[in-house]
Design a protein around this nucleic acid. Structure first.
Lengths: 348, 348
DNA sequence: CTGAAAGCGCTTACAG
DNA sequence: CTGAAAGCGCTTACAG
């Protein structure tokens, strides 16, 4: 197929045709003062006629800004990540920046490759959507003086760099309290890796709710998972195989909840009649599960937006009013929870 | 927080320290011949010492290549799109290009905005992941001489530009044949919008399989949908409310299949005991459904890779051996299909 | 209000 | 093998 490269006009051409200098054209293009109304109009017209657009590389070289933001991610999974990304996109669309996606795939080599590429000054700033362990990247960025904001999970309660998150503890509390309000008292919880502050926050919320309700905490009902479908399945089996299994399960995130669903399906246990399930995150597919998942919503899009806003501010050289921001979680009631029902698990 | 911008070294500095011209440094950096072994070594060392990396904007301005590829998408949904994107990413990582994601959100204005931005020469090429109607964009790109490849659905059997897809017809045939092999003869199908070639291809495959098996085609079992969860629900109800409902349902894609699951759950119809369900696409979450969805796999990652490869070739000014490529679909058996069972739908 | 000139940091003929 | 010079297409003090 033919794909001729069409030669686009340059500022010099416009200037020539208009009989002015490129300086003047530049002023018109950038809406700067210091141009006569008539001259401006004439140039404006020419610009439109030519369908002229400033060459990006040239501007970038002069101004030192690429208009690019890197979003670094371990792997695009389509849940949590995607929600954040939507928010980021929305914000950047407004600001006119473009979003470059980079997935590290947990591969140190590609990570280093990316890090090196950063140094060619082709990125104005970075959004970090990485799990805990990889936060060494943050140090590299700080060293290089590249603006960045970190989103989501982390292992330390406090950090030296800007972060955005949500009120996880409250989410854990709310989920548990809701289950209790439905009448449950044996509530299983499948957590994330407990070395993560954010995993422990969920658990702490769970504990708080039980304590407030005067329900004793049974360590047998607390299972550590890994935020993935697979451990959701396994830990559910572990929970079901208890001498006195729970009547409700609180999963650490929605992917894990999908695992809970699968295990329950295998054992032929009806949701929510025989077992209530509540998740965490409220990703796109949560509403698409059967039955639609009741979950704790993290305002992912808003978090992404906020992170982008903070980053943009950093890039502009402004101060952040606060280095750490947490947006509030909320309960989304759908169809996976019901009052506990006496009797064996199997029946409908 | 402090985020000092660190001043990086330039080629000129390296040249000065090495006591050579920038010409020579440039040759070393780009591994060009014409530099003495000793000089080369000395410069190489200096480069490493300085941790020097070429300024991206300057290179871009000189060479006219930005190293950026735009992926244009309607909306990142986390299914089909994401699979393609993974493949694209893999390929671009190899080639050293960076992936810019742009979502149009079905909004004409943002689309035009994006189109205009393309003209600043900041993109080397474009990957189009858009539904049918929006393919007017293709024309704009052709006019501008910007290399691009279109992926997936389309309304015309043939196009003037490069496309990549998969053997949809065969997929439709394979799915239906599998159901028939299980013993089903009343097989419902929920299609995508029938003005799409790719939707009609699925249906044609379905017809072919039934005809081959000598099973008469019942128009009442053919429902037109829209590739979304919602219509999956609705059309399933329509199918169930037939005087003689099907024993198996073939959904146009996996999102729709999730809708089928929901409707079936509502009516308390067991999958696969009382109803078999087969999907199309094999997206990430298909295996996470309860029960895991049997589906027709489109090799999404491979399609993305192939599209990127083709685009890269186009950018390099090479000829494509073929303008249209279709990768093969395949059956992925999981747990949502079983032989039909006589008797009413409700029982377990 | 307008423009000549320098310069952003590279690469690339071209000459020696 | 090596380098001086031009130039990619802009923006920005600065002078008039």
């Amino acid at each position: 197929m033919e794909q001729r490269q069409i030669k686009r006009s340059t500022m010099a051409q416009i200037a020539k045709e208009a009989g002015v200098s490129t300086t003047t054209v530049s002023k018109v293009l950038n809406q700067l003062p210091g141009v006569g109304a008539q001259t401006r109009a004439r140039i404006q017209q020419l610009i439109e006629q030519h369908d002229y657009i400033q060459n990006h590389a040239a501007r970038h070289l002069r101004k030192g800004q690429s208009g690019l933001i890197d979003l670094v991610i371990m792997r695009l999974e389509g849940g949590y990540d995607l929600g954040i990304m939507h928010g980021v996109q929305d914000m950047l669309e407004e600001s006119g920046h473009r979003l470059v996606i980079f997935a590290t795939h947990e591969n140190e080599d590609t990570e280093i490759l990316w890090l090196r590429r950063l140094l060619d000054r082709s990125t104005d700033g970075v959004l970090l959507l990485l799990p805990y362990e990889r936060l060494g990247i943050a140090n590299a960025l700080m060293e290089q003086g590249i603006p960045f904001v970190s989103i989501g999970d982390r292992n330390e309660p406090t950090t030296a760099f800007p972060t955005i998150g949500s009120t996880i503890w409250l989410g854990g509390y709310t989920a548990t309290e809701y289950l209790i309000s439905l009448g449950h008292s044996r509530i299983g919880i499948i957590t994330g890796p407990l070395h993560l502050t954010t995993s422990r926050a969920r658990l702490a919320g769970y504990r708080e709710a039980l304590e407030r309700a005067g329900i004793p905490i049974d360590p047998g009902l607390i299972c550590e998972g890994n935020y993935m479908l697979g451990d959701g399945i396994q830990q559910t089996y572990a929970l079901l195989d208890q001498p006195e299994p729970p009547t409700a399960i609180f999963a650490g995130n929605d992917a894990q909840a999908a695992g809970v669903y699968q295990a329950l399906y295998q054992r032929n246990i009806h949701i929510p009649n025989a077992m209530s399930v509540i998740g965490f995150d409220d990703v796109t597919y949560s509403a698409q599960m059967s039955p639609p998942l009741t979950t704790i919503r993290q305002p992912l899009a808003e978090m992404g937006k906020m992170a982008a806003t903070m980053l943009l501010r950093l890039i502009a050289g402004q101060q952040l009013e606060s280095n750490h921001v947490e947006l509030s979680t909320s309960l989304v009631v759908r169809a996976s929870c019901a009052p506990p029902r006496p009797g064996p698990l199997m029946e409908k």
